[in-house]
Write a protein that binds this DNA or RNA. Structure first.
Lengths: 343, 343
DNA sequence: TTGTATGCGTTATCAC
DNA sequence: GTGATAACGCATACAA
């Protein structure tokens, strides 16, 4: 069993308090004693017991990041960013996967296990409009990538509507008129799927067009597999399309795969665009036009908000929370999949 | 802020011990008292403080999974599998990224923070042959995907040599003779890169061929970007190739992208194969021939070994550790990128 | 500058 | 069955 502070204290012939002072870099420790303590620590190979420290401090130094699926490149990249931002503030990140299932997301909020961490960054997929109150638990929470959940909780969102509108406008400007929409969203979810769809429809409306319902390809999931399946169904239905907009990049990439299988050329026959700008979008064949949200900014801001929320604690002067959402920057990235001149 | 066991005990007019018995589902609690306690818990909204429990139990119920990069699809998928396997055994997984940097991997082993978890599943990239002893810290550790690190530590490996040999044999059987090798490894690393290269070379030798050094395309990293860059350099060098073997799938996908840019057809002009069978390999254009290691098996076995190691503790009867490595199953998956007849 | 004593919220060892 | 009470290892008023 490893040494404790008491062991070190005995060895260095000081009190535990002094050892604590040394390991915590407190000032006011005579150099000589410090040396003695450090020597004892080295000799005994002492390592701090963080559980004990956490109990004493009433905090763990960990935050939870709850995302739908780690296997989705977007969330892996996001997790990486969040871990970086958290580390910069001295936090360790515990990743939980919700599968985008509403009940899992709710459980996570009510869970006892959440108490192993000081706060939660939640990327909700399943939560519905009425679920707002569930979030107000007094436990520090920051919402990611969603809005209109009307909860008094801090949230960092991306420009889902504007980004999707930009994509649609780009496709329209390129002369595309029969744009298929790959992906769907649970009714009432008000999530990214809903918002991106809205942006897409707004652009059509603004152009004086109407979206043909037959051009919608619902996908149960936001994965390559689902994108491919949805596109297969769409093409099988016999409708004509000259463009496809995937509600995220993997849906779009899955769609491109099917277009290839069907012998349709991208972008000549069908232009394709996605949303997220995952790394794979730059290396696909053809490379994928998409919307790049500023992930680093989102991560930094979310962690920053959460840290702030944790810092104020549940003290009595509980400051108002859930101000206007922070909206991260985005950029439309045009690549080969929608380039005017083919490749 | 939130209620403690003492609060609940007072409220239910019992002792803390009884409350503890109830929440831990201990037998020998009179139904009536149990009801009273549960009622008090509900009324006060009591939630267990896990930090305190952990301190008392001397364990945290968490294990660390240390991988190079979460953004690499292979590791994201692996993490997902490990989380699943860990959950099945009641463990929560804390993911750490090493960036494949040797010092980071070493730090992780010596780190104090590691003590927040009960054990470590480490996927080493940077560790070298002589680093074995560093792993024998008395802290439960299971190595992933490596071998020949000659440490007395449990390890779960994949059939790197055999898998790579199978790929090479497949390419040779298809008549390819000038096979470029995309990716490299740090000298002395004895890692997956080294082993896969060895398997590749073995196949050539067995076929009575020699590997032309000019056909090696070193990559600093195992990423799409690095795979593309390496392939560009290789092609720029002017050597002729009729196949490319990426030491992992993303290297191969990056290579395919460059072949496309250079107007080379896959597989007609150049066949391509990778290693890992990440999900993207099924949806790329063309789909990628690769080796599929049984990730679920690897994850289950690693977690199982670690749980065992944790269970025996550092008691005196420390059983021997680091038996023969468990070698996971694998399968060669032939897809369009190396299909004999083009698409 | 350093030591003493007490608390953090659980679990575990006993008695009762 | 249930209740005091001592750990668990560290932090921190308060003293010295």
């Amino acid at each position: 069993m490893s040494a404790t502070m008491r062991d070190v204290a005995r060895r260095a012939d000081v009190s535990v308090k002094t050892v604590s002072n040394v390991v915590n870099d407190f000032p006011h420790v005579r150099p000589a004693t410090r040396e003695r303590v450090l020597a004892a620590i080295a000799e005994l190979g002492y390592q701090m017991n963080f559980t004990a420290r956490n109990l004493s401090l009433g905090r763990t130094g960990m935050i939870t990041l709850a995302i739908p699926k780690l296997r989705l490149p977007y969330f892996a990249e996001l997790a990486d960013e969040v871990m970086g931002a958290a580390e910069a503030r001295g936090y360790t990140v515990l990743i939980e996967q919700t599968g985008g299932v509403r009940q899992r997301e709710i459980d996570l909020l009510a869970s006892e296990r959440r108490r192993m961490t000081d706060g939660l960054v939640l990327s909700p997929i399943g939560l519905r409009a009425g679920d707002g109150p569930r979030l107000e638990t007094g436990y520090p929470v920051v919402l990611l990538g969603e809005r209109s959940l009307d909860a008094r909780v801090d949230h960092v969102v991306m420009a889902n509507v504007a980004g999707a509108r930009a994509v649609a406008e780009h496709l329209l400007a390129a002369g595309r008129r029969r744009i298929g929409l790959v992906g769907s969203y649970e009714a009432g979810s008000e999530g990214a799927g809903y918002l991106r769809t809205r942006g897409f429809l707004e652009a059509l409306t603004a152009a004086g067009l109407e979206h043909d319902p037959a051009l919608t390809a619902p996908a149960e999931d936001w994965t390559l597999e689902a994108g491919a399946a949805a596109t297969r169904r769409l093409l099988d239905s016999g409708v004509q399309v000259d463009a496809l907009f995937g509600l995220n990049d993997v849906l779009a990439l899955g769609a491109m795969r099917v277009l290839f299988e069907r012998g349709l050329r991208v972008p000549d026959d069908v232009a394709v665009a996605g949303f997220d700008d995952i790394e794979e979008a730059r290396f696909s064949r053809p490379s994928l036009t998409t919307v790049r949200p500023d992930r680093a900014q989102i991560a930094r801001h979310a962690v920053s908000l959460l840290a702030e929320r944790i810092a104020v604690g549940s003290g009595d002067g509980v400051p108002p929370v859930g101000g206007p959402a922070f909206v991260a920057d985005y950029a439309l990235v045009v690549r080969e999949s929608s380039a005017p001149a083919g490749r």
